[in-house]
């Protein structure tokens, strides 16, 4: 569904909220923080797989949002802006940690498959109550671009067009990336398909 940015009520509401923040309205800032902190932290933690680093990135993201408030333009939801900054900061952290993350890294991952030995992992014997851990493990094994796509759309509930803004992609490229990411996730989870289906 195509949304006109100018007439998107959530964008307008966010712009009003940011105008209050720019005036130093602590209540508006608290409202925004309460609404968005958890999502930003989730994204950072899933991308970095490190709680303290994720908290640092979250704090930096909100510091930037605070500085951005006086210059805020009615172009996007605050959530989209926050997730974009979070992704960028996380990628910077990952580059410093592992060397540069490139599309080549991502492309190499395309041909990877679940090693047979992984299928014998104790995870295979977990009950339904541990399905979340299966999903956590599968998400953690996704390449960072795939993981980001799945997190933004399927976990954090962004529209594909918004996720495309976050990841600096066109809508079609984003939809394609999302489809590939989900396919890869299904492949990773295939050995535990019955556990996930509760069979």
């Amino acid at each position: 569904m195509v949304h006109s940015k100018q007439h998107d009520p959530s964008i307008q509401a966010d712009a009003q909220l940011m105008a209050r923040v720019a005036m130093g309205d602590a209540a508006a800032w608290k409202l925004l923080a309460d609404r968005e902190l958890s999502g930003v932290l989730l994204l950072a933690k899933r991308l970095l797989d490190h709680h303290q680093e994720a908290e640092d990135v979250t704090q930096e993201t909100f510091t930037r949002l605070w500085r951005q408030a006086p210059h805020w333009r009615e172009e996007a939801r605050v959530r989209t802006w926050l997730y974009r900054v979070t992704c960028n900061l996380c990628l910077d952290h990952l580059r410093h940690r592992h060397g540069r993350i490139t599309e080549e890294t991502f492309a190499e991952g395309e041909e990877e498959a679940v090693p047979a030995s992984d299928r014998e992992s104790p995870l295979a014997h977990l009950e339904r109550k541990e399905q979340r851990h299966l999903l956590d493990a599968a998400l953690a094994h996704l390449p960072v671009h795939h993981r980001t796509a799945v997190l933004l759309v399927n976990v954090l509930g962004l529209r594909v067009a918004e996720a495309a803004q976050v990841m600096h992609l066109g809508d079609e490229a984003m939809a394609s990336l999302l489809a590939r990411s989900r396919q890869r996730l299904r492949l990773l989870l295939l050995p535990w398909r019955n556990e996930l289906l509760g069979a």
Partner: peptide, 13 residues
């Protein structure tokens, strides 16, 4: 899979 992903809990700061 969609349902499980949507049910993933948000992080508590």
């Amino acid at each position: 899979l969609n349902q499980r992903l949507a049910e993933l809990p948000l992080e508590t700061p």
